[in-house]
Design a protein around this nucleic acid. Structure first.
Lengths: 221, 221
DNA sequence: GTGATAATTTATCAATTGATAATTTCCTAT
DNA sequence: ATAGGAAATTATCAATTGATAAATTATCAC
């Protein structure tokens, strides 16, 4: 209560307040905002921003750091690798956690807007998925199906693309909701379950035949 | 040749030239461009833009019209409905045409950027997919598998979500390539074939079981 | 309470920006 | 070749914008 009534906040509190507010603000407005608009909306003077942030770009950088950090739970990969549970169950559990983390207006809109502006910002996050999580998902489905993972560079590529297609469909729900402003179902559980079912069933059944889609030279590997 | 040497273009030609150039320019730069930057890049004076476009927003509107119109081929839905071909083949043919049309830097980046700015701009295009193409894809897979399409509002929703997940994975390749600037395979054909195989196989095999993911009240329908 | 200090605002600048008006340059019909 | 009109540029404006400096106000230790 004491703090809420204060007009002059501690520097640390004010900085945090501005940052939090700016995240929401930028999520809604995009990168096309002026420092005055931001300050007005927050109810402080425009030069005050420059006490806490070197300049406009510095504020944006801090926004990205705040939004992207702390969103990735390293435990997810362990969960996906835990063979005491069926792969369908693991995927459902993982995707529940994943969608809960990223299906957030600020996360989705700032992710897309910043990637449009400068793809490097989102590179690190995407690398995590691409290098670790995707191969893991594919390998675990293959293991449970008792099928060998196709090997070779073109096969690796194809495998990654298949998982990309599956995995991105969940991020894309966020795009539909917070970028396109489409209505999406409130309860994601049936969708997660159904998509996992279709994907795992389809992949397990057709994994042995994927070789036919590869170029001749590698098809036999 | 004659026209290329002219300094003063016919009004219609100049307007078209500015518009084409602006599409590339905006695709790369996003909506945060100034009329001077655009004019300088094109090599004309900044006020010239105002001879052909009422104002900055008018130019943007014309860009959207030019980019979105003429991209949707009504023949695609007919193709998807043509039962003289297997549904796998139809999907492959459709997705080849679809990806060829939309996996274009200008289309993808302007689509995303404009949706972030104002979702209404992309609404009409998305409605076409959602209302017509998606139900059609699901129905045709069900027909070939000899399974009844689940019915009821929640089932309809689930069906749409399943197809959304599949279909959007192709648009999303464009996002990866032109927004995230990730490398994606040059040859999409194996990916299209593999994803179609996984999806159709998985959906045909599990369609009868989708009811289990619906809420109790409707599960029996 | 009072003064020192930190937090905030007001005042202000130079550069940028969308837009308009005045002027100049090019093209074409005759 | 030239006059008239269309096309384009130069000049300019008022508003906006990121950023800084000076002045003011709140808070806290004593």
């Amino acid at each position: 209560m004491a703090k809420a009534a204060r007009k002059y906040l501690d520097a640390a509190d004010r900085e945090q307040q501005i940052l939090e507010f700016a995240i929401d603000f930028v999520a809604q407005r995009g990168l096309r905002f002026t420092t005055r608009e931001l300050a007005d909306a927050l109810g402080v003077s425009q030069p005050l921003l420059y006490r806490y942030f070197k300049n406009r770009d510095d504020l944006l950088q801090k926004i990205y750091d705040e939004v992207y950090l702390k969103r990735w739970d390293p435990g997810w990969n362990e969960l996906l690798a835990d063979r005491s549970i069926s792969i369908r169950e693991r995927l459902v559990l993982y995707l529940r956690a994943y969608t809960a983390a990223i299906l957030d207006e600020r996360w989705i809109r700032i992710f897309i807007a910043s990637a449009l502006e400068d793809p490097q910002i989102t590179q690190k996050y995407l690398g995590l998925l691409h290098e670790t999580t995707f191969p893991l998902i594919f390998a675990e489905i293959a293991a449970e199906a008792g099928v060998a993972v196709p090997s070779g560079p073109k096969a690796d590529e194809l495998v990654l693309e298949i998982v990309w297609g599956f995995h991105s469909s969940f991020f894309y729900m966020g795009v539909r909701k917070y970028v396109y402003r489409n209505k999406i179902p409130d309860d994601l559980d049936p969708i997660i379950r159904a998509r996992v079912e279709v994907f795992v069933t389809g992949l397990a059944a057709s994994m042995g035949n994927l070789g036919q889609f590869l170029p001749e030279v590698e098809a036999g590997q």
